[in-house]
C-alpha cells in the first residue's frame, strides 16, 4: 500500500472516531444519570470529606478539579455503551468498515471531552471564587488533558464487559473509583498516608493526575511532571489493551 492510500485510510478512521464521539456527545451528555455521577457525586464527596476540615485551599481546589475530571470522564462509557448494546446499535459499530480501535477511540474521546468541559467549568468557577492563582499552565493543560483521556479509557474498558445495564458497569466502576479517592492525595496528601497507603497510591492514576493539578496551582509537585505524564499515558495504553481484549473475548 502506498503512503497516500495509507494516509487516506487513517483519515477515514479518524473521521469515523469523531463521528462516534459526536453522536455520544449529542445523546449522553445531558442524560440525568450521567450528570448525576459526573457532577453531583464528586461535589458530594468534596463537601463530605474536605469542607470544614483544616485543609488548605491550595490542596482543596486541585483536588476538587481532579475528582470532577475523574468522575465525569469515566462516567460516559459505562452509561453509553450498555444502552447502545441493549438497543443493538453497538452491532452497527462492530459491523461498520472501521477498526475496532476506532470504535474505542471514538468512545474515549466523548468521555474525555466531557471530563475536559466539566473540569474546566469547575476550574473557571473556583479561580475567582477562591481567589486562586495558577502557577503552572503547562501542568494544568497536561493534567486536564491526560487525566480526561486516562479516566475516560478506564470507563470504556469496564464498559467493554458485555452488559446491557449501565448500573452493572457503574457499580463496578464505583468499586474502583471510590477507594482511589482516598489513596490518591486528594484530601490527604500522599506523604501523610501510612506506608502501605503510599505504596498503594503509586498504583493509582489519580495520584499522578492530581499531582499535575497541584503543580498547576501550587507550583510544586511530588513527582516530576514527566513521570506523571508517562504514567498516565501508560495507564491509558494498558486500559485500551485490556478493553480490547475484553471486547474480543466476549464477542460471540
Amino acid at each position: 500500500m502506498d503512503q497516500c492510500a495509507r494516509r487516506l485510510m487513517f483519515l477515514e478512521e479518524l473521521e469515523a472516531a469523531w463521528a462516534i464521539a459526536k453522536k455520544d456527545i449529542k445523546i449522553y451528555y445531558l442524560k440525568a444519570p450521567t450528570l448525576m455521577f459526573a457532577i453531583l457525586f464528586p461535589f458530594a464527596m468534596f463537601f463530605a470529606f474536605a469542607v470544614g476540615r483544616e485543609v488548605p485551599l491550595n490542596t482543596l481546589i486541585p483536588g476538587l478539579v481532579s475528582i470532577t475530571v475523574f468522575f465525569s470522564a469515566s462516567s460516559i462509557g459505562p452509561s453509553a455503551l450498555p444502552l447502545e448494546r441493549r438497543i443493538k446499535a453497538y452491532d452497527r459499530l462492530v459491523s461498520a468498515p472501521i477498526s475496532p480501535y476506532t470504535v474505542i477511540i471514538g468512545k474515549v474521546l466523548s468521555g474525555a471531552i466531557f471530563g475536559l468541559i466539566i473540569g474546566s467549568l469547575i476550574l473557571a468557577a473556583s479561580l475567582p471564587i477562591f481567589g486562586m492563582q495558577l502557577s503552572n499552565l503547562l501542568g494544568l493543560l497536561l493534567g486536564l488533558v491526560l487525566a480526561s483521556l486516562c479516566f475516560s479509557m478506564l470507563g470504556i474498558m469496564l464498559a467493554m464487559l458485555p452488559r446491557e445495564n449501565p448500573g452493572d458497569v457503574m457499580l463496578l466502576l464505583n468499586f474502583i473509583r471510590l477507594p482511589l479517592i482516598f489513596i490518591s492525595g486528594i484530601f490527604i496528601k500522599v506523604d501523610a498516608l501510612p506506608y502501605w497507603g503510599q505504596a498503594v497510591s503509586a498504583f493509582s492514576p489519580l495520584t499522578y493526575a492530581n499531582d499535575l493539578m497541584r503543580l498547576a496551582f501550587e507550583g510544586t509537585s511530588a513527582f516530576s511532571p514527566l513521570l506523571s505524564t508517562a504514567v498516565l499515558v501508560g495507564f491509558s495504553a494498558a486500559f485500551l489493551y485490556v478493553g480490547r481484549r475484553i471486547d474480543m473475548r466476549t464477542r460471540g
Partner: peptide, 13 residues
C-alpha cells in the same frame, strides 16, 4: 448494508 432484526436506530437522534 445491514438491516438487523431489531430496528437499532438511536431514539435520541
Amino acid at each position: 448494508g445491514i438491516v438487523w432484526e431489531e430496528s437499532n436506530v438511536y431514539p435520541e437522534l
